[in-house]
Design a protein around this nucleic acid. Structure first.
Lengths: 227, 227
DNA sequence: ATTGAGTTTCTTGTATACAAGATTGTTGAC
DNA sequence: GTCAACAATCTTGTATACAAGAAACTCAAT
């Protein structure tokens, strides 16, 4: 019983690997909204038959990244400006909830972890290392999800966070955003430390919502430049 | 353009129909946690080949109702007591969020709709018609999700609500629950009408969380009777 | 030129065939 | 009797074959 080789989740199924790759492609914007996912073309591209592809499609469909119209095909669905704003708002609210529960449940030990994470964030800022800051920032947020003490909620938060990743990627380039973000982190930890669930909620909600608003500006500028 | 027969989403794909049926079976508790979904047996049962079944499986897997272990099979995952509590808590928090946003955005017209819904709830209570109350209650909640003004959030709330449906079904049988639930509905509408987002959040959170707590009691009693 | 029936081609949805890993059962050594 | 190696069987994952709906094309009628 000790040396059982537990079924490592190393993906043996090509269908799963393809699903991952397709998700990446959709995230990377390789497809336009409404593009049909051509089974035979993609099968050739991946060097497999249609079968694993069709299984992979189901995953994209379930996660809302594609839509299936019977007998017509599978079409990618890129979120439009409105849906994106809604997703950011939802993320902000969910992070607020995580903060609320975390404030009620977090341990002193976990607070220390967050303080450490923030130190590393500050170092990233000092070195002006955006990638590093991005990574540490992500760790900070994921850790708070976990401190909600509700692993179902944690998973939901992670899922949405991941889905928004491609749209958050270049946010930090906004001038001064890193420093402001850092200040917000400090406020968040303070609220958690004080066990102030209201303050934690609002701090996290605001911290995330601002991304949606920056995004809103970006959208507006795009719209004016396009139309 | 007028008489185009738009691709009705009538399910032509057996895979989709099977996915629906399988979900029902899992919801109905026809499978134990950990049961393997036998492709060939189910294929025979549904009178189809393995192919559409395997597509249907992907949907269950994506929604967390089943787990796939490569080269081993697909196993149903029934939420245990802990996970269920977590799901109820998450539902309560999300409903709270819907309430918060709805309080900020709801129209007088929509308030009237809620008042009407509550009237129908009261009638159901007067007739002691639990099924009817259940239906009206569901409408009430779904309508509030919509009033959040965030259709992404609305969809997420609907998804979780649906997933919890089988575990909420017999809650109303608890003595006096219908009347208490009704009183909470009134408080919720009042908060929304007043535009008091804090009160709306707490009213909805409490209204839903109580279900989790009732459930908690149920679980405890089960545990003691079992072990 | 435009429309529309009829035909052809393409694509999806499902069934079946096959390869390889997992499970089970058996036999033989200790 | 226990355990390990091997064989037989079962199950999954993928490829291929086939049926039927959708799209594209042709061509005659207006």
């Amino acid at each position: 019983m000790a040396d059982v080789w537990y079924p490592t989740h190393m993906e043996i199924r090509r269908a799963d690997m393809i699903a991952d790759e397709l998700e990446e492609l959709v995230f990377a914007g390789e497809f336009q909204d409404g593009d049909r996912l051509d089974e035979v073309k993609l099968a050739a591209q991946f060097g497999v038959s249609r079968t694993p592809l069709r299984e992979a499609f189901q995953r994209l469909i379930a996660s809302g990244m594609a839509e299936q119209i019977p007998r017509r095909g599978v079409f990618v669905r890129q979120p439009g400006p409105v849906e994106l704003m809604e997703m950011f708002e939802t993320m902000a609210e969910i992070e607020g909830v995580c903060g609320r529960l975390a404030a009620l449940r977090i341990s002193d030990q976990a607070i220390d972890v967050l303080l450490e994470a923030n130190k590393r964030c500050q170092q990233a800022i000092d070195h002006n290392d955006m990638d590093d800051y991005y990574r540490e920032n992500e760790y900070f947020h994921h850790f708070i999800y976990k401190q909600s003490g509700n692993s179902f909620l944690e998973q939901e938060a992670l899922r949405l966070h991941r889905r928004l990743k491609p749209f958050r990627r270049h946010q930090l380039r906004v001038r001064g955003r890193m420093a402001q973000s850092m200040a917000e982190h400090v406020a968040i930890v303070s609220a958690l430390q004080a066990g102030d669930s209201e303050a934690a909620t609002e701090a996290l909600r605001g911290h995330v919502a601002i991304q949606g608003e920056k995004f809103h500006l970006l959208i507006s500028s795009l719209k004016t430049s396009k139309g």
